[in-house]
Design a protein around this nucleic acid. Structure first.
Lengths: 120, 120
DNA sequence: AATAGTAATTACCTAAAGGTAAGTGGCAAA
DNA sequence: TTTGCCACTTACCTTTAGGTAATTACTATT
């Protein structure tokens, strides 16, 4: 068995680890889904939609998504500042999968919560 | 705007938060994918396949998946103990989505790493 | 009598994630 | 002259995730 063991956890090369780690955090998926629904949003709009995210974490989350090329950031040189966020083309191929995931979660939440309740 | 704001982050009711939080951790997806490939595995087999997971985290991960009804645990009353893990029917409807996610990660990893490298 | 084998469990520790609250810059309006 | 607006940034703190290494229970084998 030992020499046909696949590389299931190679941190450097495993795409799942390397890429999906990035939105396994608390807020990224939520931000992506919101932007998918609303198309373009300013910083404070996102902040209001997701009532419970802190300003700091919204900054961090958006910056990580931007660095990965999953979100566009467009800053207008105005006072007070205006910054608009939207999804990139790359993200648009991802969203259907995330929507499937969300749908699965919707369909299975009740059963899963029932399982949890039985587990004491 | 304020009164048509959707409930994007309600911790108690949002299915995405409530359900998908559970495999946004470091190991759950990997364990699910491995079990999907191999069908039935013992504790130590999983441990060997995923060379870098600690015994403690494998225990924790499997228990959480079991509690959610995503993994079956079958213990044989033998000495030394034998415990076999496999996916549940509930998980089998989830795996195609996870496979899609993995495929997307595969297809986009190179681009994303390039984006990251440009971001300094 | 000692050791090996399996599936954990436990105590302890470190690092990372995330929250809070205050501050920044620059202009316009009161 | 103060206040408000916006998009952050910073310092500080708490909580959670995850790692290490030792230990457990039970029996068969050496």
């Amino acid at each position: 068995m030992d020499n046909n063991v696949k590389n299931y956890a190679d941190e450097e090369h495993c795409p799942v680890r390397n890429v999906l780690d990035r939105f396994g955090d608390k807020w990224s998926m939520l931000v992506l889904m919101l932007l998918s629904d609303m198309e373009v949003l300013r910083f404070n709009e996102i902040h209001k939609y997701i009532g419970t995210i802190s300003q700091k974490m919204l900054t961090v989350t958006l910056k990580k998504l931007e660095v990965d090329g999953l979100v566009n950031r467009k800053a207008y040189p105005e006072i007070p500042p205006r910054v608009e966020y939207s999804l990139t083309d790359r993200t648009k191929t991802l969203m259907p999968i995330i929507q499937d995931l969300a749908q699965w979660a919707n369909q299975n939440m009740a059963d899963i919560q029932y399982s949890r309740s039985k587990a004491v």
